[in-house]
Structure formats: structure tokens, C-alpha cells
Design a protein around this nucleic acid. Structure first.
Length: 541
DNA sequence: GTTAGGG
DNA sequence: CCCTAAC
């Protein structure tokens, strides 16, 4: 990393930037890279491709990126050599007086560099040579490499793709297959691009390559590639923003990591509100609010998402167990004991309705009443229950026997004796259930789990629609897993239910109907299932 | 409240 | 099976 930074600086010098080597550069360029490069690329692409207006269907509007960019030029970068105007008031905000040329020079540099220079930069960035002559390709690769990311936001991605698609019915930009091959081959064999220098690269290719590189795993790369390809044909996967917990934890780590630097750099401006890594982004012409937004570009699962930076303090959703423990601590046993009684009473007078299972309180409460307690730090909710219950034990409260939970017909809950398996409430799927599930799917189609639950699992109180969904997912996996005739099902040690091949077959069939074929083995890899031997499957598709 | 998807 | 964001 250091090496890389060093070399980058050299390159900056080559661009006429005065020397300003400092420890901050590292951090700084990260910040700007992440934020600026991609929009910049977009912009470039845009101008290069004479296209009509893009219609950004969703969040990352193009306007936004433009604004961001111009604004950022003012704020995050202050070249000693040349005022890069835009005179935005934002520059005042910018607490980083540390100059960063990369932001503004970055594009310019890349634009003006000769192929040779680009090669140098490429080497600096990727640590290997390239013989690609395509300037555009080089620039993109380098830019992407510097962003160090799969941070191409899905949205941006789509837009670009659309653009490309729109533009090119000629497939110069769109030859997806070609792209994939070249991209991965190049990366894999270190041959670069030379084999077919004529074709243009696409955003997609870059995406893949960088991603693959990052993961350092070719197969992953290929998978991703095919995945992306599939995306074009089917709907993109729902993107998830990182969970709150993730954000919190990450923020925690980062703020710790950068603390020293923040302190040392903060004295320049007087206040260290933000770490250098984060850019303050004034909300452009969005008239909404005066507040500046602090974000960082986070890449999670390849989806670049603007993640709000949260401070270390846990906000909202205070840990519930904390609450419980606090009660215990402060007000003594009284409250806790009461809690225990509540918990106990809940299932000592069980209505035993079929919906009892849905009540998580009941569930967790009754289930945690066990002589054994897993020593592991548990999930919040459970822990609170556990602690109160344990307390109750200590107080000498009588516990009703834990076998209550199995009242229906069930098997035991949580053996959890020692080191081994402590599944909470696990109920093995019976073959009957599986069949019902398959049936239900064939009737309702996938994705309508609650419906299936209503129709086929009305009598099974314990299978929630989520369970059905999960099971289906597993079935799917199983059915598409290689099913070589030799080992087959038996080799599994403790496979709960073997799941006859016939059923798997049916699952596969249904899956194909609903376009659920996993991206890897496309349609046709498996011997096509003889179809329509049965089923009036309501033609839902 | 349901669904999708990661853990 | 759990969790939780997206819907």
C-alpha cells in the first residue's frame, strides 16, 4: 500500500503537482478517490458517448454526481499551485487543508497522459505491466484500480449499462461475452488486453476485474462475471445496504484507526469533526437542508452504497439485554424476579394456540429455560431473557419444566449439553413437509411464501413463511448441486432427510419455471427435465 | 406485515 | 434458524 501511494505521488509530480508528500496523502487520496473517481468516469463516459439524457431511475441521480464533483473540487482539494476556483464556500468547510491533487488532477492527468505514462501508472497501480494500447481502457482501469473498489454502485452501473445499451445496438460496447472472457483472461494470465485490442472495455468488465482482483480468486471473479451477465437478463438482486450493526461497528473501528491522524491534522483547522477520510458533501442544489452530509462510500457485496457515517455512540435500538441487566443492577432483584415470573407465567398457562409459536417472546422465553446455558455471548434478546431466568433460578423460583415447548408433537429442544450442537428450535423437515412445500410452490409459485404457508402449512404452526422460504432455498441448492449418480444422497453423514431424487427433480423443474436457475449452471447444463408430465400448475410465471 | 438475502 | 433491510 505504501509503495503504491509512493508511486502515485510520483505520478502526481509528473503531472506538475508540487511535492507535498505527507502522511496524509494516503488517507486523503482514499477519500477523494472513492468519491470522485466514479462520478468522474461517468461524466467522461457521458461526454464520450454522444447520448441523449440519461434517465436516472433512482437514487443516484446524475445531477448529484456532477454537483458532488464540482463541489468537491472546491473543498477537498486545494492545490498550492493553482486555485481551482469554483470558489465554493465549501472550501471553507473543508478542514483538510492538506492538498490533494488527485481529485482534480486525477482526471486531467489521466486525460493528458500518454500511453506510456499510462502504462507507468498502470504498473504503479496494479503492480504489473500491460501492453494495452487502448487509452480509454487504461484510464478506466487505472481509475478503477485507484478507487480500489467494487464501488461501482449498482445504480451507476445500470445507468451506464443502459447508456451503452441504448447507444450500441452495434455491440462494440456491449459484447458482454467477449468482455467477460477478455477481462478474466487478461487478469488471469497477466496477458492484459493485447489479444484483442480493438474491443472497448465496459464498465462491467472493470467491475469484474477489480472485484476479482480484490478477492484474489479467479473463480470468484468468473462467478461474478457470469453473475453480472445474468443480471442483464433477469432482474438484479435486491441490494442491501449494510446493516446498522455493520455500520456501527465499522465506524467504530475506523474512528479508532484514524484517531491519531485526525488529531494531528485537526489542529490546522481547529476542529476535528471529521476524519480525513470523509468528505463533507454539501447537498448541491438540493434545497432541502443546510446540513452537510457525511458519508463514506462503502462497498459491501459489490454494491457501492453511500453509507452514512455514524459515530460510535450506539443510537437507537439500545441493546435490550443492557436494559435488562441494568434493571438487575440498579433496582435489585425485585424487577428481575418479576420479569422471571412474567416469563414463566406466560407458558405456565398456555393457551397452546397454534399461533403461540409466532410469539417470539414465548418462544424464546420458554426455550431458554434450560438447565444449561450456553456460555457464549448470545443474541441480545435471548441474553436478556436468559439472565433474568438465571436470576430466577438463583432466587429459588420454581421453573416449570422446559418440555412445555414441545407440547405439540415435537422433538426436543436444544440438547446443548456440552460442546456440541445447540440448535435453538430446530425441527427437522420431514419428507411430507418438503413435499407439501414443493407442492405449494408449484401452486403459488416461488416468492409467495405466506400464501403457501396459508394453503399448505396451515396445520404446521411451527413453519413460518420464512422457514418455507429458507427451506426452498436449501432445496434449490440441493437440487442443483451436482447429483452424480454414484455417491448420491447416502454419503451424507447425518442428513436428516435424504430427499429423494424425484423431489429434487421436481424442485429443479419448478426452479426453472420460475427462472431460479442459479447463475453458474445456466439452463442447459443439466439434462432438461421432461416437462409437463403432470401439473396443472396454474400457469403462473 | 412479507419477502429477500446474508449469517 | 435468525436477523434485518427492502418492499
Amino acid at each position: 500500500m505504501l509503495q503504491k501511494v509512493k508511486q502515485e505521488e510520483k505520478l502526481r509530480l509528473a503531472c506538475g503537482s508540487p511535492d507535498h508528500s505527507s502522511a496524509f496523502m494516503n488517507v486523503d487520496s482514499q477519500c477523494t478517490d472513492q468519491h470522485d473517481k466514479l462520478p468522474a468516469i461517468d461524466k467522461k463516459l457521458q461526454s464520450e458517448i454522444p447520448l441523449q439524457e440519461i434517465v436516472p431511475s433512482s437514487d443516484l441521480s446524475l445531477d448529484d454526481s456532477h454537483i458532488n464533483e464540482s463541489a468537491r473540487i472546491g473543498e477537498c482539494s486545494k492545490p498550492p499551485d493553482g486555485p481551482i476556483e469554483s470558489g465554493s464556500p465549501a472550501s471553507v468547510i473543508c478542514n483538510s487543508s492538506k492538498p490533494d491533487f488527485y481529485t482534480l488532477k486525477g482526471e486531467i492527468c489521466l486525460d493528458n497522459l500518454s500511453i506510456r505514462e499510462l502504462h507507468g501508472l498502470f504498473r504503479a497501480t496494479f503492480g504489473r505491466e500491460t501492453t494495452v494500447k487502448d487509452k480509454l481502457w487504461l484510464k478506466r482501469r487505472i481509475a478503477m484500480g485507484l478507487t480500489n473498489s467494487c464501488d461501482v454502485s449498482t445504480t451507476t452501473f445500470t445507468i451506464i449499462d443502459n447508456k451503452l445499451v441504448n447507444k450500441g445496438t452495434d455491440n462494440s460496447f456491449q459484447n458482454a461475452d467477449g468482455m467477460l472472457t477478455e477481462g478474466s483472461d487478461g487478469e488471469a494470465k497477466n496477458l492484459g488486453y493485447e489479444t484483442s485490442p480493438t474491443s472497448h472495455s465496459s464498465q462491467m468488465e472493470n467491475h469484474q476485474i477489480v472485484l476479482g482482483k480484490r478477492l484474489g480468486n479467479l473463480s470468484v471473479e468468473l462467478d461474478c462475471g457470469s453473475d453480472d451477465l445474468q443480471m442483464e437478463h433477469r432482474g438484479a438482486k435486491r441490494v442491501r445496504k449494510p446493516t446498522k450493526r455493520y455500520i456501527e461497528e465499522l465506524s467504530e473501528v475506523e474512528s479508532r484507526d484514524y484517531t491519531p491522524k485526525v488529531i494531528s491534522s485537526a489542529k490546522n483547522t481547529g476542529q476535528g469533526q471529521t476524519s480525513p477520510k470523509y468528505c463533507i458533501r454539501p447537498p448541491g442544489n438540493a434545497p432541502l437542508n443546510e446540513r452537510t452530509i457525511v458519508t463514506r462510500l462503502d462497498s459491501l457485496g459489490g454494491s457501492g452504497v453511500q453509507v452514512p457515517f455514524v459515530s460510535r455512540v450506539r443510537r437507537s435500538r439500545p441493546r435490550k439485554n443492557i436494559m435488562a441487566l441494568m434493571k438487575f443492577d440498579s433496582s435489585g432483584m425485585g424487577v428481575a424476579a418479576k420479569l422471571v415470573q412474567e416469563a414463566l407465567s406466560v407458558h405456565s398457562s398456555p393457551p397452546e394456540s397454534e399461533h403461540a409459536d409466532k410469539d417470539s417472546k414465548v418462544r424464546s422465553a420458554s426455550e431458554q429455560i434450560q438447565p444449561q446455558f450456553a456460555a457464549e455471548p448470545e443474541k441480545d434478546k435471548r441474553r436478556s431473557v436468559m439472565s433474568t431466568i438465571e436470576l430466577g433460578k438463583n432466587l429459588g423460583l420454581k421453573q416449570t419444566d422446559s418440555s412445555e415447548d414441545n407440547s405439540d408433537d415435537g422433538i426436543a429442544t436444544v440438547p446443548t449439553a456440552k460442546g456440541g450442537m445447540r440448535r435453538k428450535h430446530h425441527r427437522a423437515w420431514t419428507l411430507v413437509e418438503v413435499i407439501k412445500l414443493v407442492e405449494g410452490v408449484s401452486k403459488c409459485g416461488t416468492g409467495r411464501w405466506s400464501e403457501i404457508k396459508r394453503l399448505s402449512f396451515a396445520s404446521y404452526s411451527y413453519r413460518t413463511s420464512v422457514d418455507l422460504k429458507d427451506k426452498w432455498r436449501n432445496l434449490l441448492k440441493a437440487s442443483f448441486a451436482q447429483t452424480p449418480p454414484d455417491d448420491g444422497i447416502n454419503s451424507r453423514k447425518h442428513a436428516s432427510v435424504p430427499i429423494p431424487a424425484a423431489i429434487l427433480l421436481k424442485v429443479r423443474e419448478l426452479a426453472e419455471m420460475h427462472a431460479q436457475v442459479p447463475p453458474n449452471l445456466g439452463p442447459g447444463k443439466l439434462p432438461s427435465v421432461s416437462r409437463s408430465v403432470h401439473q396443472t400448475r396454474s400457469g403462473y410465471l
